[in-house]
Design a protein around this nucleic acid. Sequence first.
RNA 1: GCCCGGGUGGCGGAAUGGUAUACGCGGAGGACUUAAAAUCCUCUGUCCUCACGGACUUGUGGGUUCGAGUCCCACCCCGGGCACCA
Length: 843
Amino acid sequence: MPNPKRSGKPARKSFSREVPFSKLEKKWTKEWGDSGAYEPNRKTAKKPYYNLMMFPYPSAEGLHVGNAYAFIGSDVYGRFKRLQGNDVFEPIGLDGFGIHSENYAIKKGVHPAQQAKVSEKNFYRQLQTIGNGFSWNERLETYDPEYYKWTQWLFVQMWRHGLAYRKKQSVNWCPSCKTVLADEQVIAGECERCGTKVEKRELEQWFFKITKYAEELLKDLDKMDWAEKVKVAQRNWIGKSVGALISFPVHGKLRNIEVFTTRPDTIFGATYLVLAPEHKIVETLKKEAGNEQEIDKYIAVSAKKAESERIAEKKTKTGVELKGVKAVNPANGQEIPIYIADYVVAAYGTGAIMAVPAHDERDFEFAKKFGLTIKTVVSPEKDASASSAPREAFSGDGYLVNSGKFNGRWSEEAKADLVDHVGGKKVSTYRLRDWLISRQRYWGPPIPMIYCEACAAANKGENKEMPGWYAVPEKDLPVKLPMVKDFRPTGSGRSPLSSVESFYKTKCPVCGGKARRETDVSDTFLDSSWYYLRYPNLGMKESKAAVAQNSGTKKTVKLVELPWNAEVTKKWLPVDMYIGGAEHAVLHLLYTRFVAMALNDWGFVGFREPFKVFRAHGLLIKEGAKMSKSKGNVVNPDEYIKKYGADAVRMYLMFLAPLEQGGDWRDAGIMGVVRFLNRAWNIGNGDLAKQKSLSKWLHPSIKKITDDFASLHYNTVISELMIILNRFEKEGAGEKDFKAFLQILSPLAPFLTEELWEKSGEKYSIHRSAWPKFDPKAAEDETVELVIQVNGKVRGRITVSKGLSQNEAQDTAMEIEAVREQVTGRVIRKVIYVPDKILNFVV
RNA sequence: GCCCGGGUGGCGGAAUGGUAUACGCGGAGGACUUAAAAUCCUCUGUCCUCACGGACUUGUGGGUUCGAGUCCCACCCCGGGCACCA
C-alpha cells in the first residue's frame, strides 16, 4: 500500500488540503432539506424512535454555546440511532412564552410578541447551522395560539377532573418579577429567574393537585432509566416521611390538636406542643388565652418574614405561648403547654408538632430558650439513669426510659405499639406541595376561566367548593392573549390584563349574565409540560375523547377533541430518549410526569411516564470558569462555525469530556479536531487500496465505538477515531475500512462524511446507511501480549500465541533478563497466571 | 447538617481488580520555507543517572489482594441538590 505523501505538498492537486466546509454545509443542508432526510413518516415508520432534547427558550442574545452543546449531544445520539436502522424523529421548537422572554422584551423596550418574532428567526437560523438532523417540518412555538389553545385546554381538563383549584394562602412573591412563584421556582429563598429575595404574600391563586400523585411520582423512580442525580433530586423534593398522626386533647373542651411525628416512640418525652402561626385552631385558642395581643403581634411579624430570613435565622427560635390553654399528652396524661412558633411549617404534616426537646435538636433549642422541661425517654444504654439534664438532643435510636410499660424496649421497634397505645394512625406525609400555576404577568396563556358573580351568589358553578367559576368551553378556545400596550407587571398582585376591559368583560357561559375572565396567565412550565406530545401530532387529525362536563346543575358527557392523534401517539410515545439539563429536575421533569399521569387517568394517553430514558448533559464552562456575559467569556458558536465549520465545532464540543459530565472549552483545543478533519479529508480524496473485507484490526474499534456512542461517551469515540486515522496514515487506508470509518464518524461530522461518501460512489445518504457490523470472529487474534510481573511489578512483555499453557509461559518469561534478575536466588513462592493477560511471580 | 457526583501529567481527559497517564491541547527540538503560517517527524509524569537503567506517582491515612486509580474503613477538598419538613 502506498504511503500518503507527507512532504508538505498536497498529495493531489485536485482538492484543497483543508475541508471546504462552508461549501459542504451549504450543499448538504439544502440537499437534506429537499430530500426530507430527517423527516420520518409519522404514520408508517417501522421502527419509530423519538429522540428529544429539551426545547430552548429563545433568548434574544442568540444561541448560547451551552445550548449548542446540548443539542449537538442529543443529535449525535439521534444520528447514531438512525444508522442502527431506526426511524428517528428529532423535532425542534421554542419555549417562547414566559417571564424570561417577557423580561428581556421589557429591558429592550419592545413588545414581547415583536421580540418573539425576531428571536425566533435568529434562533432557528442558528440552530440550522449546527448541522442537526432536526425534523424541521414539525416545529412549534408555545406562544402560537394554535399551540396555547391546547395549553389552555389542558388547564380546562385539570379543572374538569378536579385537579385545578383556587385557594387563598401564603405564597411566594417575587418583588422584582412582580408575580407569585411556585415552590420549585424558589432557590434558597431567591427567585429562580432574577435572584431577588422572595417574600410571602397572602393571595388567592390557582393550584394543580400534583400532591395527589406524590406516591406514584416517587415510586416510579425506582424502575426508571433516568440520570441518577435527577432521580435523587426528585426523591428529595417529594420528601416522603413515614410517621403517625396523634391527637392531643386540649384541656377543658372537646377538642384535639393533631400532630404528625416520625418519632412516636418518643411520645413520653413530648413536653409541649407547637403550632404553626397559620394553624387554623390558633384563631379559636387565642381568644381563650390571656395574651391575644401578644399572639397577634407574633403572627403578624412572622407572616411578613421572607423565606430567606427564616433560613438565616435557623437556630434562633422564636415563639409565643398560648397562655392559659393546655394540652394533654395522651401517653401519660400530663398537662403540657402550647406554643406558637414559626419553626413549624404550616403546610407540612398537620401544621402542628409534639415537641420532644430531649430528642430533637430544634425542640431542644426552643425548650432551652423558653425554659421548658427536657425529658429523656431514649437512652443509648439499656440501664441508664438519666437524671441530669442533657447537654444536647439525642436523636438516635436507643432503649426507652421514663416511658411507663414501654421501658427497656428498643425505640425503633416500639414505634407501632406506642402509636396504638395513644390511638394514633400510621401515615406518610410528603414535602411536595401543590403546583402554583397562576402568574400575574402578561406573556403567557390566559387562564381559561370565567367568574360569574350572579352564579356565585346563587351558589352555582362547576365545582361546589368554588361557586361562580366556569371553564371556558373547549369550543371557545383559545382565549387569545390580547395585544396590549402596557404589558408590564403591575406589582398589585394582579396581572396587567386585569385593567384591559375588552379582555376581561365577558358573558357567563351558563347564565349568560355579566361575567369576568380570569386575568392571570399560567406558569411557563405548563406550556412545556406537554409539548413532547404535540410534536409528532402536528398536522395530524385530532382524536376525540369523552369528558364529563358539569355545567352548573346538570352533568353531561361530551366528546372533546384531543391535541393529538391516538394512533400516532401510540406509535411514537413515550419519548425514547430525552436529553436536557439537570436544573429542571424538580421543575419541568416533575411537572411533565404529573401531567402524563393525569392524562393517563383520564384515558387520553396510554402511558404514565413520558420519557423512557432521560440523560442530563453537563455544564459547558470556559477555561475553568462559568461563562457569563459580565465576565465577557461567552463563546459564540456562530463565530467558530464560520471559522472552522460545523463539523469541527460539533466534534470539539463532544471531545471535551463525556456528555453527562460537561466540558471545558479552550479556544486552542479546537485545532486538534480541525487537523483531524483535514487529514480525514485528504485521505478520502486520495487513493484508497482495494479491499475484499474490513481489516481485522478495525473490528474491536467498531465495537468500542458502538458501545461508547450508546453510553454517550463521545469523547472516547473520537479518540478511537483518531487512533484509526493515525493507523490509516501510517499503513495506508483500505477502501472498505475508510467507508466504515466515515460511517462511524458521520454522527459527529455529518457534512464531511456525506461528501466523502458521495465521492466514494456510495448511494445517498450516509446518514441512512447501515452501521458497520462488529464481527467478533473476524476480530480474533492468534497472538496476544502477555505481561510478566514479579511481585506485581511489570518486568517484561512477551508476544505469545493465544491459550498458552502456564508452563510454556513460565519458560518463555524466564528468557527475559529482567525477570531472571529478579527471580534468581530467590524462592518462587507462588505463580499467578491469567491466560492471555498476565504472569506474576511471587518471590 | 443530610443526600448525590467528583478529586489522575502544565491543561481537557483515558483506563471489565491485571501494562496508569490512551486520545487531544500545550511545550521542546528538527524538516520544509528567504521568512512566517500551515504541514510533517521526534521527544514530553516526577526524581536519580552521561547513559543503560532504577525508584516514585491517581486528594490524605489505613486495610483487603499475588496485584488497587478501581474494592473496604476513616478523613480532607471541590461541584451540585435538599434544608427549622418534626
